[in-house]
Each structure stands twice: as structure tokens, then as C-alpha cells.
Design a protein around this nucleic acid. Structure first.
Lengths: 337, 337
DNA sequence: CTGTTAGCGCGTTCAA
DNA sequence: TTGAACGCGCTAACAG
């Protein structure tokens, strides 16, 4: 069996009685005679030779790695993205490494900086909060970056975004069709990209359908998490009597579901609930959660392809892709299981 | 603002009018005069200098990276581990990269091999299936590895394991105390590490408490996932009438919950349900899911510390740590919300 | 088809 | 305190 001791091209070359460049050629698919190739492979095998990634990177400038940066590995929407991206990048010959930055913009800036040290050939990132500094860091990065999520219009970076506004419109339309009038929003922090987009979408949809809203019908969770959602929904129920609740993501939607149950309200009888992202969490919830599919899998796929193209062709024109939303109706708004 | 163009020590040195070694020293905290340090920092800042990771790695042999390999990023137990580990390794000066291997042993072997190329200073892995080849690959790896999960007794690798058998014993004891007699098991694949451990634990606990079981009371899902769990539970309900179901993880437990609801059985009235791992999914389920806490956070923490120690001291004796289980009682077995 | 050699960027000797 | 020079392991010119 291979020993996997410290070994290098020189040792292999010595053992095989050939030159280092011949070893390199054989191992990288260059042309060589049968005889030489055999000797090289034999020696390499016997020594358990594994090439040194850093040395290769230093020479070639490539790492064959792509980094996916997400704010919270616990958010099922990122899980979907990871699953999708893994396949795409692997097919293109890259290994995917996942990096969990927090919600903090500074740690995201640190990540961009850090990747400029040459840890990866490209970065897929879905920033929760976009600050001037982060934009500046991404802009001045020498590493190709594709942003998943909305970006200021003047930033010339490839990006793939969802259409939250239309998505929330779908949810409101669906709720209105069922006679709901007092539609509440359990949002995440409004200083985040999705938080602000979803609030704007909600307000615009409410107006478009001629409904009324109020400060009491809008609550903001401290984070896009289940726990924060429970708290926010509890506050909501203490100050208003909605007949429908839209959670700004599935975790917040599930939290609303649970809080309503704890408060003895029936879903969808008394209150209908809609989540966003259409993740596994929506399917697992009881009652199952109607959710706005913001195309996270499609977004991830498109972003990965964009990044791969950008790495291959740094001069390509900047692409902006918008993925249209869809509604997955489930039990929490009267749909079938 | 820093330009983050391609730059290196030489360019910085030239700009500052000093030698490269002086720049290196200043930037790495060596001794230097105030004046020189100032000039160096200024030049570095102006050029947006970022050190080249591969070059540094090649010189020092360190990457300051630790890899966590998990089988399925969608499994909430791994999410818990990622969260825990991120903090620990960061505090020790390492960056964490997460790698999602599939359940396939070969891809895990590939990962070990690949990391021997020098992508990381250490590996935390939680193998789903352990084969001879994987053991051999880990054993002959020159990279420090800590295994989270049970390992054959003769493998001299640091490892931190749960005590599934005792854990299932806790669940069975709890169910028996509530008068349940026909306790079913919805297991994951038995050729996996947790699958076989949990089956053995189940059989031993059933016997210890003087209960009966049968082939009909034991079903095996094709994977530790929600979808597979639904299918397996449906099969179970078609062939037996359990008054309690133990899911081999929380996803399988939630699946049982949902399938029971679909079949019109009440939980815990007709059937009590217990999951394993005590993840967020147990809390989010309706009714909330009683779950055996196998100490995933503690295991991850212990493993990370072990790995960091091992990297610092490769000659340290091999450690084996067992984390004791606990039971989190929730609604699905009659506990409070 | 094969071997020799330069140099990627860095940290670290050793001298001055 | 500072600078010059070497070499980590590899790939890609270039030479033969």
C-alpha cells in the first residue's frame, strides 16, 4: 500500500531513474514513452506520492478551488445552494469549499481579503448586509466574485438575484384570493439585503391590492432565525390580529406557525401563513408551509456557471440575472398536504 | 483605498526603499525600527498588499486551515457541529473550510488523499460508512485526522464518539415508563456507522426491558433523510401497529411524525415518537420531537480541541473520548412544548 | 521523447 | 537592526 510519506517529484524521479520534468509530464498527462510512464507510475505509487498543492498553485496560479460564502449554515436556503453548487463546480473540475461568515459585514470583508491571498480561484457570495466597505472590497478584489443577491445598480459585478417584490406579490395575491385582509409581515432585520427588499415588496403589494397595513402589522425579528421569529411573532400577536402572516423566510414562517399554535390560533383556519425560500423546512413543518420559491437552487446554479465562465474569461461583460419567483401552496394556506 | 492589485514583497520593498526581508519581518511582527516599520506599512497599504498563501505555505508548511468533512450539509446534526467547530478553530487561529463529501466512501477517501496535497493542517471527519480502504487511507495519511464517530477498536486515531446504545436505552426507558410496549425503529442504512450502532442499541435495549420486537417493527430508510423516512414509516405502518417509534435521527423522527399525521394517528396519543441528535429540527417540529441528545455539539468541540492539540503535538498519545447521551423530552412523548 | 533549468513568493538562515 | 541569498515543490520554457 502507498505510504503517503513526505515525498516529492525529485524523490520519485530518483527512484524511477528519470528526470523530474518527465515525472511531472507523465503525472499530468503529457506525452511520454510507455516504458518511462510505467516506471514513473510505479515509483510514484510505491512512494505514495501526492503532489503538493501549494507548489503547484504557486507555479500555475490556479488553486482549482471555488469558495462559497454563506452567512449562516443553519439557514436551509443556503443548504439548497450548497447542494446545487457542489455538483456544478465539481463537473467543471473545481473543489468547493464552504465558508461560513457571520452576518457581520466585517467578517465578509475579511473573507474577501483573505481569499485574495490565493485560497481560491473564485468566490460565490451571498452577502446579508452590504456596506460601502464590502462593495469596495469586492470591487477591488483581484479574485472573480459572483454575488448571489441584490446589489446596488452601479456595482459592476456579476450577480444573480431573486425578485422578492414579485414573490411577495404572489403571496399577497394568493392570500387576498382567500379573503385575507389583515396581512402581517414578520421580517428579518431591515438593514439586510433580503430584509429591506422584502419589506419594500410587502408594502408595494399591500398597496397594489388596496389593502391596509400598519406599524402593528409589521414586526422585525432580530435575525432570520427560528428563535428570533418566535419572539417577533409573539410580539405581533400581542399588538394586532392578523388573518395572515408572511414570514420573510421559511424559518420565520415556521416560527409563526409554532407561535400561533402556542397561542391557540388555528392555521389556516384563523390565520394563514406563508414563508419564503421554499426550502425543506417548509415541507417538514406541520401544517406544511406555503412558501414563495425564490429560486435559490436556480440562482445558485446560474451563479456557479457565471463564476466558472468569469474565471475562464475575466474580460467577459458583466452579467446580471434575475430569477423569477413562484408560489408553492401547501397546508398553511389551505392547500393539500 | 487599497488597490489589491497583484503585489508582492518585492514590490512593497521597492516602494518602501528597503529589502524584502525587512518587509517580511515588519509584517510578521519581527523587530524593526519605528522609521522602517512605518515606511513598510505605508507602502504595503498603498499597494494593497496581501501575502500569497501558497508561497507562505510552501515555506512554512502550514496552511492555517482546518477542514471539516461532513456527509450531508442538509443534516441538522452537521449544522450544529459546523457552528461549534467554527468558533473553536477560529480562536486557535485557524480558518475552517467545510467540505461536503457524499455518503460514498470513495469520495471520502478522495478527500483524505486530496488533503494530503496540503490543503489543510488537519481534518475533522465524521464518516458515514467506514470501509477497510477508508481506514487505510486515514491511517496512512500524513495529515492529522480526528474522527467524530465510532471507529474500529484497532484504529489508532484520535476519536470522539457518541454512546448510541445508552442513548437508545434512555429513549426506550422513557417510552416504557409511559406504558409503550410495541416500540418500532425507523433506522437509516445499516451499513453505516450510526445505522449499525443504533440498530444494535435498539435490540439490546428492547431485550433489557423485556419487550418484544419483530422484523415488522424494524424498517430501514434508504438514507438518513426526511423523504426516505416518510417512505420507511409508511411501510412500517402498513405492516405493524407500533405504539411508539424511534427514528434513528431527527429527520427520520420528523418524517415519522408527518407520516403518522397523514395516516390519521395522533401523537403522542396513539403513537409516541422519539428522534435522535436533538437538533433544531426537533424543536421546529409539530408536535415538537422528543430526542436523544447524542452530544453533537460537545463531540464537535472535543474533536476540534483534540485536532488542534494533535497538530501542535503530533507525538501525543491517541485519545478516545466518549460523550454521554441525554434525553430531551418534548411533546411527541407527552412532554411540555 | 527526454533532461536541464529558471523562477513563482515567501520566510529564514547567515553576515554585515 | 538590516540586507543578501537560498530553497520549499512544482511547471513550463528551452535544449538536445
Amino acid at each position: 500500500m502507498a505510504e503517503t510519506k513526505k515525498s516529492n517529484l525529485q524523490l520519485v524521479a530518483a527512484k524511477a531513474g528519470v528526470s523530474v520534468s518527465s515525472v511531472s509530464r507523465v503525472l499530468n498527462g503529457g506525452s511520454a514513452s510507455e516504458e518511462l510512464a510505467r516506471k514513473v507510475r510505479e515509483a510514484a505509487d510505491e512512494l505514495g506520492y501526492v503532489p503538493h498543492a501549494s507548489a503547484r498553485t504557486m507555479r500555475t496560479g490556479r488553486t482549482d478551488q471555488i469558495t462559497l460564502a454563506v452567512a449562516d449554515v443553519g439557514n436551509p436556503v443556503y443548504v439548497q445552494m450548497m447542494r446545487t453548487v457542489t455538483g456544478i463546480v465539481a463537473k467543471a473540475g473545481y473543489r468547493l469549499v464552504v465558508s461560513s461568515t457571520g452576518a457581520d459585514p466585517q467578517s465578509q470583508i475579511d473573507l474577501v481579503t483573505s481569499l485574495n491571498r490565493g485560497y481560491a480561484d473564485g468566490l460565490l457570495m451571498s452577502p446579508l448586509r452590504i456596506t460601502e466597505d464590502l462593495v469596495e472590497a469586492m470591487r477591488s478584489s483581484r479574485l472573480p466574485i459572483v454575488v448571489i443577491g441584490t446589489l446596488p445598480a452601479d456595482v459592476a459585478l456579476d450577480n444573480v438575484r431573486a425578485d422578492s417584490a414579485t414573490g411577495i406579490g404572489l403571496a399577497v395575491e394568493h392570500l387576498v384570493a382567500q379573503g385575507r385582509r389583515r396581512i402581517a409581515l414578520v421580517n428579518g432585520p431591515v438593514d439586510t439585503v433580503p430584509g429591506s427588499a422584502r419589506l419594500a415588496g410587502y408594502l408595494s403589494a399591500i398597496e397594489r391590492f388596496g389593502l391596509a397595513t400598519s406599524a402593528e402589522l409589521q414586526v422585525t425579528a432580530s435575525a432570520f432565525t427560528y428563535k428570533a421569529g418566535r419572539k417577533a411573532t409573539a410580539a405581533l400577536l400581542g399588538q394586532a390580529s392578523p388573518d395572515a402572516i408572511i414570514g420573510a423566510n421559511d424559518l420565520l414562517g415556521v416560527a409563526a406557525l409554532k407561535e400561533l399554535a402556542a397561542a391557540g390560533r388555528r392555521v389556516p383556519g384563523d390565520v394563514a401563513v406563508v414563508g419564503m425560500d421554499d426550502t425543506d423546512a417548509a415541507e417538514l413543518a406541520t401544517p406544511s408551509l406555503t412558501s414563495v420559491d425564490l429560486g435559490s437552487a436556480k440562482r445558485a446554479k446560474a451563479a456557479a456557471k457565471l463564476l466558472i465562465r468569469r474565471i475562464a474569461d475575466p474580460g467577459a461583460p458583466v452579467s446580471r440575472i434575475v430569477i423569477p419567483p413562484a408560489l408553492s401552496v401547501r397546508e398553511s394556506t389551505g392547500g393539500q398536504a
